[in-house]
Design a protein around this nucleic acid. Sequence first.
DNA 1: TACTCACAG
DNA 2: GGCTGTGAGTA
Length: 627
Amino acid sequence: MSRYKWRDLLDINSKTKAYCSPLSCIAHIDINAFFAQVEQIRRNFSVDDPVVCVQWNSIIAVSYAARKYGITRMDSVFDAFKKCQNLVPVHTAVFRKGEDFWQYRDDCGSWYTEEEKMLTPEKNKVSLDPYRRESRKVIKIFHEWCDLVEKGSVDEVYMDLGRIVFSDLLFSDEFDDFVSIRDQFKNGQYDLDDYLPPLPRNLTISFKDGEDYNPDKNPVFQDWDDILFCLGAMTTDKIRQKIKDVLGYTTSCGVARTKTTAKLGSNFKKPDAQTVIRNSNVADYLDNESFELTSFWSMGGIIGKELSLLLELPSEKPLRHIRESWPVSSDDLTAFIKEKTQQKTTDNERFYSLPAESLQQLSDKVFQLARGDYRTTLNPRPMIRSMMSNKNLRGDSCRHYQDCLAWLEVFSGELIGRIKELEQEYERIFVPKTLTISTRTPGFQRHSRSSGIATGGRIKAKDLMELGTKLVKELDAKYGSTKDYYPLTNINMVISNFEILESGRTIIDMFGKQAQVVRKSGDDFLEVTDERLQPDESGTKRVLRCEPCKLDFDEETAFKEHSDFHYAMKLSESLNGVNEDSKNLSYGERKLLFSGLKRNNSGPKQSDNKKRQITGRNGDIYKYFNK
DNA sequence: TACTCACAG
DNA sequence: GGCTGTGAGTA
């Protein structure tokens, strides 16, 4: 006889109830060393190349190949080189001060001078757009499988596998193991409060080697929760395989009853592995792998540390100590915390001030965390509230009004790019109604100015620029002459109060008239065919003209590069994620596409700025001037 | 609503 | 350690 009831099983078929069921099945997946993997694939390095992702002189992500040399995120690039001669540092994309588009500088050729190529924080702002974009592609794959996905951050998600494992158990043709319970279910021979039948004999499904955390080698299938976890793990395995095949990223995954334990599980084996923490093994997992209260998500900071002190947790198996000291309910734990906090000391002042209500919540949480049974819902990402583009300034990179304007260009470009991506993701139009500019002085004083945005329809970079300029002017007029204003130490632009409109037009409508992608047989390259991009035969001299850009090209290679640029723009603009074309491409082909993305979709705008065409040896064609 | 703080990655 | 993002609490 099972410990679980039919009600528990049926609950996991409900998005709203599943997380509460004792049979809940939650997965956490994170992409290993995400930024480093993005750069490794973009630049066509192998998984064995010790790639690190770099921002200025700091390392912000370390590939697993680089970790073998003992390189960590704390190392500077310089230190890392000392540990590994063959280090492959790849800098993030950047916005250049005064430009409203980001680009990777690693492969962009010679149109910048050496001085300009230097990636310094004084003249550049890091762009994380490439990672957000890749993240979206990954998350889209999760959504193809799972009806309830929570984006934890740019590189991790939670999935409620309830409906998947429910239907695997009761309906899937793939498994013959469950005929008995299926018959019972189909014929309605059960009551919600009946216990589930005993497990079938001779099960054919099984965990993959090592994915079931099972140090004591207990019988693997003791009850239906074990079966469901196994089915869940089979699904996450397929999802992760798909991500690897289509996008190239390796991931780590944990499957367990709650979000927090699933997250601890995904961290257990890295990279490219998954771990199931079955309910019968949770306590052992928490104790044997030396987890502490502070190991849980949201407990990593001051609260967790002070709580640990307050509860006088031993360093050895602190979570077992919690379970054994407060075995019955959280009430005793609450009482203990109350008593402790009333002995006011400097250490626990913060708890002293906690209202009784949140104290009860906190102790419930601790009680459940220690048992691997702290249940929280999976929250789909709420609609956007605001969007900020921010720059911390050092030295004198913003010493007057004109410098502010140069950074405004960057902010406008970044925010417009992000709005565009949002619009594609949600198939809506996002119109911000408020714009705020804030500055911070060398004395860390903050000043800000806001204004309503009155645009008819979609907002443009120009709109942000104009309004932003007005606000920067106001700030400059009021504070600019005071002694302690310039050079600014921070400036940022925030757009908020979004109006979200239905977009009647689909992506295809917006881009359908433009370039079509065709594959030339026997050629690995993808080319753009568009009447406006066709070469113009005139007399002896062949002029290659790009009509939308009003640019002529003498050399075919330059023109081809330019076409590729359009293609890359089209690709990145029209595709929110994995498109139908790239789905069917091989890994190598997909990488080829990716490596074509040298700059972002904003690009220099013909109408907004003067620019001069120069011939870059590597085919890059723009030099961009402000005045 | 604006601002700060805590926490995470 | 630099940077970005979120949610909760507060005035």
